[in-house]
């Protein structure tokens, strides 16, 4: 956090914008879930949630203005969780005698 450079007050308009966007995206997400998209619902839902997460993380948690140590730590955590989820799905998909 580079508080010496930035006046904390200057961030407030950004917070308000993020607030509005987060609420709007939540509504969009709910609305989209009633569309008959089949499996596409999950994709849309996760996409919208991902955008919300980036907004909250980047602006509200000041991640965009953080230093690179924090960026590296989070990159590591994200890489691990992605590895966990992706490899789990692959393991699920590739089983012997797989009957679905």
């Amino acid at each position: 956090m580079s508080e010496d450079i930035h006046d904390p007050r200057k961030q407030v308009p950004a917070y308000i914008k993020v607030f509005g966007l987060l609420l709007l995206l939540a509504v969009i997400n709910v609305a989209a879930s009633y569309l008959p998209l089949g499996g596409g619902n999950i994709g849309v839902g996760l996409l919208v949630a991902g955008v919300q997460a980036i907004l909250a993380l980047g602006i509200l948690m000041h991640f965009f203005s953080e230093n690179k140590t924090v960026h590296h730590l989070m990159a590591l955590a994200l890489a691990s969780v992605v590895a966990l989820l992706v490899i789990f799905v692959c393991c699920y998909a590739d089983q012997l005698n797989f009957v679905k």
């Binding site: 956090m1 580079s2 953080e66 230093n67 690179k68 140590t69 924090v70 730590l73 989070m74 590591l76 955590a77 994200l78 691990s80 969780v81 966990l84 989820l85 789990f88």
Partner: peptide, 25 residues
């Protein structure tokens, strides 16, 4: 560029990401 507790909390959050990651998996 960070004070100790900030590094600490981000590390803790990294582990939380993995905790909920386990549940999501």
């Amino acid at each position: 560029g960070a004070y100790n507790a900030k590094i600490g909390i981000w590390l803790f959050l990294a582990s939380e990401v993995m905790l909920f990651g386990g549940l999501f998996s």
